[in-house]
Write a protein that binds this DNA or RNA. Structure first.
Length: 712
DNA sequence: TCGACCTAT
């Protein structure tokens, strides 16, 4: 997907008398001149010296940079020029999103006049564009966390920059805690006081906090410079967390946005959205409109309503061109929001919060913000996730309105009274407080943090969520009775980039002679739904799915899809033409109502996990078409997610006692299996279990006695 | 008889 950054495209023009048309050398020179000019005009350029001094004199620095300040592209270059990469050290910059890491790295490589992957590179999952000569490395924060498992002191980095820290993703939060620890541990390695951490007889003073990292065994590490970059004005949280670290502010380049509120609260915000769209269209000057809605369904409903009411527009007025955008929309259709609006039309973009941060759309002058967002929430007691519609935070409302002022002054229509705005939460609840923590806890344990409840999180997740995750990991065999990572199971599970339950299934699979099938299964379970069923073609989609359906459940059905797709590709593969292969595959997916993006992703995961499994020396085996052992393996791995049939076709989940139903998308919907295992429990209109397979009730006590055998 | 907000290893 395009990640539009204003100011990064170069129109062809003449510079300093060089004709840029036919002479490629002159064209390149003109482009370099242009880049130099653009760099000089960024707000951050005037404070280069000061920033470098601040980094030299502070081990930790908070940088609050407004939109358009140029902090992400410029700061690493300043630090490189100031000598922070001496002795072959690297500057690392983390991003919460893959696209951002890639696009920024490309831009910086161009600014430096080097090939991507040389001095400047990026590294994200499935795509590493770095080499031994890379000194400025952009990456996702999740990837740096993974790196820390192999190199706990992150020894190759002299500086680490955590960008977009205000977004407070789980990875960013864990990373902040880890980096604080690494910084401390590196300092200790220099002062030779490492042994004090373990010595109870030394007076450690009140501020003393030992490093929880594994000892560095006498190796000395140079200090780690830490830079936290945030867009929000509230740097206090970060500053306090890092012991009163210094914070500096960099001006941005943003146009003013006028904020308008409604006089009264709106009873039906969708109706209100519709009215506002037409008001803006009829009363305001030219410029595109961006509307924030909570999900696909709302977007499609508003799109229909707008089209229904268009004929009522006064004669001679401009038309409205609606453009939906949400993440599961095929990318060709997503690209429509970037196309130039045909004359005689005003573009109205109907978006989820994908348009808040992930995608920047040029040309937006008006924002319509009903003030709601769909957010993930997690109940650790029930082990259940759900999506709920809640009011946005103030910070989120600000971020949304900012989208109207990227290129010129704009307007934002908030569809609630100003008094309501005052009641909103300051900022969005950090993700770490509302998600399943099993993976986070496992990673921390693998990094040597034994006391996870006492871990210095920037904001502590609910204690119950941590305790539940510890219990969960213990039951999976990842932790010992003393709550330490078990050997080898816990260590193996931590190494695999999968949900801990899926990692457990892979480890078990060797014993059940079905590793090949389980590899496919966990890859397919790790992606968004494989089957794609548009409302208007739901019957066709159902028929297509029947070709893959297996009466024993969804897991084997997924294996069938993977096998058939790969056999098909194997037969048609052209070897030389990768693009053609892709096209053939997309066509196959379309015919079979399979989501091609999901399937491709699953294939990537399959290959990556297979490599890991080989490196760990797993015993490869296949059960062919005899799936009995495979289903026994499912029971042995997913025993925490077992459900028993009750009268009237409902099921009772054994671990939590909840009453659930089999999701209508499951091949087992409306069948009458007595005992099933499932992978997901979600609350939507009802409590549904998804990805369900039949097992024998007796397998549970046989294969998971740690959970199903009552002690005498 | 269901509908998926966004990310990441």
């Amino acid at each position: 997907m395009a990640h539009g950054r204003s100011g990064t495209t170069t129109p062809s023009r003449q510079l300093n008398g060089f004709a840029s048309g036919n002479n490629p050398k002159a064209g390149a020179l003109a482009r370099r001149q242009k880049i130099i000019q653009q760099r000089r005009s960024l707000p951050i350029a005037s404070v280069e010296k000061r920033l470098v001094e601040e980094v030299k004199s502070n081990d930790t620095l908070i940088i609050v940079g407004e939109t358009g300040s140029g902090k992400t592209t410029q700061l690493p270059q300043f630090l490189f020029d100031a000598g922070f990469c001496r002795d072959g050290k690297t500057i690392g910059i983390t991003q919460p999103r893959r696209v951002a890491a890639v696009t920024v790295a490309k831009r910086v490589a161009e600014e430096c006049g080097v090939g991507l992957g040389q001095k400047v590179g990026y590294s994200i999952r499935f795509d590493d564009m770095t080499s031994t000569s890379t000194r400025i490395k952009y990456m996702t924060d999740g990837l740096l966390l993974r790196e820390a498992l192999l190199d706990p002191y992150l020894s190759r980095y002299s500086v680490l920059v955590v960008d977009e820290a205000h977004e407070r993703t789980v990875h960013t939060d864990v990373l902040l805690g880890l980096l604080k620890d690494v910084q401390k541990a590196r300092l200790r390695s220099l002062s030779g006081k490492e042994s004090e951490d373990k010595n109870p007889n030394i007076n450690k003073g009140e501020d003393y906090q030992p490093s929880t990292l594994k000892p560095c065994q006498g190796r000395k590490f140079p200090p780690l410079k830490l830079i936290i970059m945030s867009a929000s004005l509230d740097a206090r949280v970060f500053s306090e967390y890092f012991g009163g670290a210094r914070a500096v502010h960099i001006q941005g380049r943003q146009h003013p946005v006028e904020i308008l509120y409604t006089l009264r609260p709106q009873t039906d915000y969708l109706e209100s959205v519709l009215v506002t769209i037409f008001q803006v269209h009829l009363n305001e000057g030219p410029g595109d409109v961006l509307v924030f809605l909570t999900g696909q369904e709302e977007i499609e409903s508003v799109e229909r309503s707008v089209q229904d009411q268009m004929p009522q527009l006064p004669e001679g007025s401009q038309n409205i061109l609606t453009c939906p955008i949400f993440s599961s929309l095929p990318s060709e259709q997503q690209m429509r929001v970037f196309a130039t609006t045909p004359s005689g039309f005003r573009k109205v973009i109907l978006a989820t919060n994908i348009a808040e941060t992930s995608v920047t759309i040029p040309g937006i002058k008006y924002v319509i913000d009903p003030g709601f967002v769909k957010a993930r929430s997690y109940d650790p007691n029930k082990g259940m996730e759900s999506l709920i519609i809640i009011p946005t935070s103030k910070a989120q409302a600000l971020q949304r309105s900012g989208r109207a002022g990227r290129e010129a002054p704009g307007k934002c229509f908030r569809l609630y009274p100003e008094s309501e705005f005052e009641k909103l939460e300051e900022s969005t609840k950090p993700e770490i407080k509302r998600c399943n923590l099993s993976n986070v806890i496992l990673q921390l344990k693998a990094l040597g943090v034994d006391d996870v409840i006492g871990f210095d999180f920037i904001e502590k997740p609910p204690r119950l969520a941590i305790v539940k995750s510890l219990e969960h990991l213990f039951l999976l065999g990842a932790l010992t009775d003393e709550c330490k990572l078990s050997n080898p199971v816990g260590h193996q599970m931590a190494r695999l980039p999968l949900d801990p339950m899926y990692s457990k299934a892979l480890i078990q699979a060797s014993n059940f002679n079905c590793l090949e099938e389980m590899l496919i299964t966990v890859a397919m379970l790790s992606v968004e739904s494989i089957f794609y069923s548009p409302r208007e073609k739901s019957e066709e989609a159902k028929t297509a799915m029947k070709c893959f359906a297996n009466p024993e459940g969804d897991h084997i059905t997924l294996i069938n899809v993977f096998r058939v797709a790969n056999e098909f590709l194997e037969k048609r593969r052209t070897v030389i033409n990768k693009e053609k292969d892709e096209k053939i595959m997309r066509k196959w997916c379309k015919q079979n109502f399979v989501n091609s993006r999901s399937l491709r992703h699953a294939c990537d995961i399959y290959r990556q996990i297979r490599r890991h499994a080989e490196q760990m020396g797993f015993h490869f085996s296949s059960c062919g078409d005899n799936f009995l052992q495979f289903r026994r393996c499912l029971a042995a791995s997913f025993f925490l997610n077992a459900a028993l049939r009750q009268p009237e076709g409902i099921y009772r989940a054994l671990a939590s006692g909840q009453v659930v139903r089999i999701h209508p998308s499951s091949v087992l919907n409306q069948t009458k299996a007595d005992c099933v295992i499932f992978n997901e429990l979600v609350q939507t209109s009802q409590k549904y279990i998804r990805n369900v397979s039949i097992i024998d009730y007796l397998w549970l006590t046989e294969l998971a006695p740690q959970f199903y055998m009552m002690p005498n």
